[in-house]
Amino acid sequence: MSLWVIQRDLLLAMRRRSDVLTTLFFFIIVVSLFPLGVGPEMNMLRTMAPGVVWVAALLASMLSLGRMFSSDYLDGTLEQMLISPQSLSMLVLGKAMAHWLVTGVPLVLMSPVLGIQYDLSTDALLILTASLLLGTPVLSLIGAIGAALTLGLRGGGVLVSLLVLPLYIPVLIFGAGAVEASTAGLGAGAHLSLLGAFLLASLVLSPWATAVSLRISME
């Protein structure tokens, strides 16, 4: 059932490729703006890189949250999903995964290239990519709750950022921390396993909370 939703959402995303590209370019531009703001000194850039890439990833994945449910809401598909006998949580899980495949995966794939801009070592690049790979699905899952709660509200886009960004903080800390710990020679294992734990916890809890929120918003 989730697979069907993922397939459908991916198909829709392919039809509107510009949306996907917009998010990706936003990510690239934000990351590239930082050196222009703080100066091209390589040592400073190297220490900043994980934080900058992660903050940009948070913002990019948050920007596209509005689209997660709104088009289905407008054309009535969401209503059909709510009354369908399938478990709403599974449908929501499918939608969050589709959101991740469309916005998160391109960011993960792009991040090594952006890391090179910041002169990161190969090890650090690897850890950065791994942390994003584990962390971006969490962002999509937590974001789904915010997107469901603000469905159909005026000013929903700004509101989502207020609701969701504070909840992203642990992911940011451990995501960026993983790279810093590995460059400091401490090893990134602990950070990455915590990110994995966040992923598992949000996989279990978030679809359920999102389903509750969707029912509230659609009443």
């Binding site: 709750i145 709660l149 603000t150 000013g155 509101l159 207020l162 609701l163 504070p166 909840l167 909370a209």
Partner: peptide
């Protein structure tokens, strides 16, 4: 701000509850 943005008080209550509990 979530509660302020929702006009229907019942929806505002429930949506606020979800975000408070998640918090």
């Amino acid at each position: 701000s979530l509660q302020a943005a929702i006009d229907d008080p019942r929806r505002a209550d429930k949506a606020g509850a979800v975000i408070a509990l998640v918090g």
